[in-house]
């Protein structure tokens, strides 16, 4: 799983914000707000990674139970795929 190219991620007013640019901005209007975990995973999936790798990375970065991490990563990945944000 890997995010499409064409998103800009920045911290605005202390909140992580993702905005599509170029071609992507024509099909997806608006912006995405990410919490801290979401911003971490967003950056992680800029490179090709599996769900399992995402879970391991999340557990390495945050004090979170593996079951919870897996549920979070699956939900995150499913949301990205449902919106067509992945390659």
């Amino acid at each position: 799983m890997k995010l499409k190219k064409g998103f800009v991620i920045r911290v605005v007013g202390g909140e992580s914000v993702v905005v599509p640019v170029g071609e992507l901005s024509k099909t997806f209007h608006g912006m995405i707000n990410l919490n801290e975990t979401g911003a971490f995973l967003w950056k992680f999936y800029n490179e090709e990674h599996t769900v399992e790798e995402g879970v391991a990375a999340l557990c390495g970065e945050y004090d979170v139970a593996p079951e919870q991490a897996e549920a979070d990563v699956r939900k995150f990945v499913e949301t990205l795929q449902a919106n067509g944000f992945t390659e």
Binding site: V8, R10, G13, V21, G22
Partner: peptide, 16 residues
Amino acid sequence: LPQDEENVVATLELVD
């Protein structure tokens, strides 16, 4: 929100 990357990045920095 503009579409080109440079102006999007500049917008986000200005809003911040």
